[in-house]
């Protein structure tokens, strides 16, 4: 079974969000182990652009594996303040360490996000 850490928040589109959920706070976003396992070996990540304004539910990037391609949804609203450039050369980090080295981007929140799931609720939808 894929790991679902208790301390993170989750979207129904299989992103995780780490950090304080308050306006002006910066959160880190990636995809869950469950999503990474479903995709298989990720060979290419199209990252969002630093400085871009993003809204919850927007498509802000894509993840390509040998088997499939998956859109990356932004689970929160705000501005992209950082992206994990290491993934350009080492996209496999997402599969190897989805909640650590495989983080994808950071957003400064414009508002408190709504509709995120706690680990228990997220684990329930992946069963």
């Amino acid at each position: 079974m894929a790991n679902v850490p208790d301390e993170l928040q989750y979207s129904e589109e299989h992103e995780w969000v780490s950090g304080e959920l308050a306006a002006d706070a910066v959160v880190t976003i990636g995809i869950t182990e469950h999503a990474a396992e479903a995709l298989g070996d990720i060979v290419y990540v199209e990252l969002p652009e630093v400085g871009a304004a993003v809204s919850a539910g927007d498509v802000c990037g894509e993840l390509e594996s040998t088997k499939a391609v998956s859109e990356l949804y932004c689970p929160v609203t705000g501005d992209v303040v950082a992206v994990n450039d290491e993934l350009s050369d080492a996209p496999e980090a997402i599969g190897e360490d989805a909640y650590g080295e495989g983080w994808i981007f950071k957003v400064r929140l414009a508002e408190v996000p709504e509709g995120l799931l706690d680990s228990e609720a997220y684990a329930a939808i992946t069963e």
């Binding site: 298989g40 070996d41 060979v43 599969g95």
Partner: peptide
């Protein structure tokens, strides 16, 4: 990892697709 394939539950991968 097992998936539905043409009505069969079959292994899509064991370790990794590229390996």
């Amino acid at each position: 990892t097992l998936v539905d394939f043409a009505g069969w539950e079959m292994p899509v991968r064991y370790t990794g697709d590229i390996a």
